[in-house]
């Protein structure tokens, strides 16, 4: 499989990275296609009946008790924000 300029722009949109254009776009298309062609060597391998591995830790999920142990420091939460007011984060208006 390979990607074209349109696809790269679509992926960039999904990843919320400003649409690449021109030489930058061409370069990305080439890079991505080289990488994809290379990773596709996995197709040589038969993986029938092989289970996918999602974690190397051989254990079940550890749980915590339902008690309030955190929160209560809104100033710290917005401390690093570029725009904050009354402990709210402020962003350009969200329009759907």
């Amino acid at each position: 499989m390979s990607v074209d300029e349109h696809t790269v722009q679509y992926i960039a949109k999904l990843a919320r990275i400003e649409k690449p254009v021109g030489d930058e776009l061409k370069g990305l298309v080439d890079d991505l296609n080289n990488i994809l062609a290379w990773v596709e060597q996995l197709e040589e391998l038969s993986t029938e009946n092989v289970e996918p591995m999602t974690s190397v830790v051989d254990a079940s999920l550890r749980v915590r008790a339902d008690i309030v142990t955190d929160g209560g420091y809104p100033e710290d939460i917005v401390e690093n924000a570029r725009d904050a007011r009354d402990n709210f984060f402020v962003v350009p208006q969200v329009v759907e």
Binding site: D70, G71, G72, P74, I77, V78, D86, N87, F88, F89
Partner: peptide, 11 residues
């Protein structure tokens, strides 16, 4: 209050 019930994980 805004962001009062927020941990570092939630943020």
């Amino acid at each position: 209050d805004p962001n009062a019930h927020v941990s570092l994980v939630d943020a």
